[in-house]
């Protein structure tokens, strides 16, 4: 008998996962595929902790995805490869729930509200929930620079915000949309790799000093946020941008978690 029993270590306790396993194949993203001589198959997110070959025991260790043990947040992304939209293009956005830009597939949105602010005017955006993702379609009418923001109430008050640009314009000075906790960029135009990007945190419209801001980027392999920042007395802090994809900034205060998605243009 050459098969092994596979055990998994969950919170310090060993559990039998599968008996008489004769095939194990490690895959991407910490997946391990296993198959027993009875034809039972299973894929699990874990890593091999120990192999006791004489005793035919393989012990796995559970890998918790960040989304499982961290506080959930919501964030918006533009549904374009391009970083901005062109005139006449259909403008679509997505709202996700999860952590560290990793989507929590099990989350069920209850009443997500999405609004848009342009030229000082706010309007509600129609939303559609599709397999755990909120889809926002603004049609083709929009032009210029807009801010889209989302809100969902649950255990905490979750907010998300993003800039949306249609056509090529130059903008200076960005107004806060007025969220109870809000991240705004100091300079909307300036977001380049290899440069510092400055943001400001506002609480009820006023700069929040000493706020802990976390930052991450799309596609990171870090389980938790890779960057931790603290705002200065003006509520400002900055991050040197090195990743190719979009960045997400997240700040928490009391019962509120608020995110800001920085969309890169290239």
């Amino acid at each position: 008998m050459c098969e092994a029993n596979v055990y998994i270590n969950r919170n310090g306790k060993e559990e039998l996962l599968m008996e008489k396993v004769d095939r194990m194949i490690p895959g991407d993203e910490n997946n391990i595929f296993m198959e027993s001589i009875f034809g039972e198959r299973r894929v699990i997110q874990a890593r091999i902790k120990e192999m006791q070959l004489v005793h035919h025991r393989i012990i796995l260790e559970e890998i918790k995805t960040a989304a499982e043990f961290q506080e959930q947040e919501i964030w918006l992304t533009l549904d374009t490869e391009h970083g901005h939209f062109h005139d006449g293009e259909e403008i679509r956005l997505n709202l996700f729930n999860g952590y560290n830009m990793k989507v929590n597939q099990d989350h069920v949105f209850s009443h997500p509200q999405v609004s848009m602010l342009q030229h000082g005017q706010t309007r509600e955006c129609p939303v559609q929930i599709n397999e755990g993702i909120v889809e926002v379609n603004l049609g083709e009418e929009a032009d210029g620079l807009m801010q889209v923001y989302a809100h969902e109430s649950g255990d905490k008050e979750l907010y998300a915000k993003i800039f949306l640009e249609v056509g090529h314009h130059h903008h200076h000075g960005v107004e806060p949309v007025g969220l109870p906790l809000e991240i705004i960029p100091s300079n909307y135009q300036h977001a380049r790799m290899g440069e510092n990007y400055e943001i400001q945190v506002l609480k009820n419209g006023l700069p929040l000093a000493g706020a802990k801001v976390k930052s991450t980027y799309a596609g990171t392999s870090n389980h938790d946020y890779p960057h931790h920042l603290v705002t200065d007395e003006d509520g400002k802090t900055s991050l040197f941008l090195t990743a190719r994809g979009n960045y997400l900034f997240s700040v928490a205060d009391g019962e509120i978690i608020s995110t800001f998605t920085l969309t890169k243009s290239f």
């Binding site: 290899g194 890779p226 040197f240 090195t242 990743a243």
Partner: peptide, 21 residues
């Protein structure tokens, strides 16, 4: 390993900043 991949990703970020600044 997944941990080393993450370490490499983070190191590249630091190397990036150190070269550019």
């Amino acid at each position: 390993t997944p941990e080393e991949k993450t370490e490499q990703e983070n190191l590249l970020g630091q190397v990036f900043e150190s070269i550019m600044t």
